[in-house]
Design a protein around this nucleic acid. Structure first.
Lengths: 189, 189
DNA sequence: ACCTGAACACCGTTCAAGT
DNA sequence: ACCTGAACACCGTTCAAGT
């Protein structure tokens, strides 16, 4: 599934790893729209080398998100689902993760209905994480009707996008998520 | 309130109007992130002239949105509020208006918590439009608890942002708005 | 096979020089 | 008072030339 290249020349392999390390730093600081030329420069390679290893911005971002994906799973597995507030907290954490880097929510959104996006893996991971939590919430009797996790993911990503763009205070974000959760509980598909 | 300049030299006035006309066209086609240099070029002026009349992209966009603002009001005034589906339709129309141009929802979002943004007027207009509709919905007995129109506006703008970014089909957008409306109805502030 | 880095066609933004 | 348009410092992306 992952396109791990079988063998890479020693210098190429080193360059690839260095680009990835630098990209992680720069994207953490400047967001997903950080300059690719700057990443190449800081990694000590020519722009062409970056493009050879990562033909698109998304393909670079997908690898940077590797540890991010792991964190989504862990957060879901350890999320309490005892009360309604627990679920709001979960949605809040999901939104927080979705905007782990500046511009990330928008990048994820752009990949949602794109089968061939390199970010598909990251997107699926957050879908599955959400499924897990809501499944457990149903078993706990907190939620009656099944919810479409695609709709949940879209709503949470939308909340994350506007929270970042409008610099919303956490309280306003929580208000939005309260409404979303009430809707999910009340809604019958 | 609007900063109508008292007197403008004849040539300046003509340039200003021509820039505005061209900007409306170009932004309609290419979205709110359209190249300002291209707008200046197509309007037959130097880039500096555009910057003189519109020191920021937002200030240009704010004027382009003049007719847009009028449409928001009209839509709100004529919106039926008889059934729950009417309200979903209204949210859908609001989301549609919020993404009247590509990138518009994001531009509006960026202005939301910025007191000095030139887009503040457009933002207030959509807030008031939404208040009007929900006020009538309450009088019609469709909604019991008061809703914070700020929260509604944020949610709808978030939906509009992700709908555009992810190229969501209308059906998925409607699903999101159904959940939002259910949440608004069920929620007690 | 892989890398370099100049080159291309763009951005937004500024500002001296003109009228 | 207003306009021009060259100039600056950037983008993303490509591709001949090197090793």
């Amino acid at each position: 599934m992952s396109p791990e290249p079988r063998e890479l020349r020693a210098d190429a392999r080193e360059n690839r790893l260095r680009i990835l390390a630098v990209a992680t730093d720069v994207i953490e600081q400047q967001g997903t729209m950080a300059s690719l030329n700057e990443i190449a420069r800081r990694a000590g390679v020519g722009p062409g080398t970056l493009y050879r290893h990562f033909p698109t911005r998304e393909s670079l971002l997908a690898e940077v998100l590797a540890t991010w994906v792991a964190r989504v799973r862990e957060t879901a597995e350890s999320a309490p689902v005892g009360t309604r507030e627990d679920l709001v907290d979960w949605l809040g954490r999901l939104a927080g993760i979705a905007s782990g880097y500046r511009g990330l929510a928008a990048s994820m959104a752009a990949s949602m209905n794109d089968e061939s996006s390199p970010l598909r893996h990251a997107h699926r991971a957050s879908l599955e994480a959400n499924d897990l939590v809501f499944q457990r919430a149903r078993e706990a009797g907190l939620i009656e009707h099944p919810v479409d996790s695609g709709t949940v993911a879209r709503l949470v990503t939308g909340v994350a996008m506007i929270a970042e763009q409008a610099h919303l205070p956490p309280e306003q974000v929580r208000d939005m998520l309260q409404v979303v959760l009430d809707g999910l509980i009340a809604h019958r598909g």
